[in-house]
């Protein structure tokens, strides 16, 4: 399992497009729009920008790392080859999910560094640590969702599908863009995992405990996505 994780991590970190998308883009967004001075409800605006862009990096990182390449690996027969090695199915599934969680680190670290150096964010270290811990846990449903999409979509559609889902969740969840959405969309927003993770992040940096409702939304997404992953895996395996 260690060897599998190392192999996949090296493969992901060598992928330039992936790194640009997950580190350069959120850091760039942060530097452009996130580091305004001033406060909102007693919290630095630059710290709220930090949360938004860290959620961007975390959700994108988990989706892409867990799901990206899975469609190609399937199409090219690499997964079949792995199935006849001692690597067990459960280890592969678990490895992909953990990989998704681990791969949020480069992007979150990049945004944190930008917030510290360029945004002059002053946060007690405990809150900063709590934010990172929250993002690690909160990326689980995204990792599962990415894996499901990787197992479901085919070929080039898969990569595009992941990007579309990512931006849809980011926009709907208010991670990118500002203001409220019209009518029913505003209601839908409260049910997205991206919005929930963003709200939890804002709560954590303000020193509050995350709201149970947001944790509930993330939990339900994780459960549904996990069930979908298992179902797809069974279907793909066949007999």
């Amino acid at each position: 399992m260690f060897f599998f994780m190392r192999f996949e991590a090296v493969r992901a970190l060598r992928n330039v497009k992936y790194l640009v998308f997950l580190i350069a883009v959120p850091v760039g967004f942060y530097l452009l729009w996130g580091r305004q001075s001033g406060e909102q409800d007693g919290i630095q605006i630059s710290a709220l920008g930090l949360v938004a862009m860290a959620v961007y990096a975390a959700t994108g990182g988990a989706l892409m790392a867990a799901g990206g390449g899975v469609a190609d690996d399937r199409a090219q027969g690499w997964l079949r080859q792995l199935k006849v090695t001692p690597l067990r199915d459960a280890q592969w599934l678990g490895g992909r999910i953990v990989l998704g969680i681990m791969m949020i680190i480069p992007g979150v670290a990049g945004v944190s560094l930008a917030a510290l150096l360029a945004g002059h964010v002053h946060l007690p270290p405990a809150r900063w640590a709590a934010l990172i811990g929250l993002l690690l846990v909160g990326s689980v449903p995204f990792s599962l969702l990415g894996l499901f999409l990787g197992l479901t979509l085919r070929g080039k559609t898969a990569q595009l599908g992941l990007v579309v889902v990512f931006f849809a969740l980011a926009a709907l969840g208010g991670v990118i863009g500002s203001g409220s959405l019209p009518g029913i969309w505003e209601k839908a927003r409260h049910l997205t995992p991206s919005y929930s993770l963003l709200q939890e992040g804002n709560a954590v940096i303000a020193g509050h405990a995350p709201a149970a409702a947001d944790a509930g939304v993330l939990g339900v997404w994780a459960l549904v996505a996990a069930g979908a992953v298992l179902l797809r895996w069974r279907q793909n395996s066949g007999t």
């Binding site: 493969r11 992928n15 090219q76 690499w78 080859q81």
Partner: peptide
């Protein structure tokens, strides 16, 4: 495997 393959990247 005949249907086995190699990974990209």
């Amino acid at each position: 495997l005949q249907s086995g393959g190699l990974p990209d990247g």
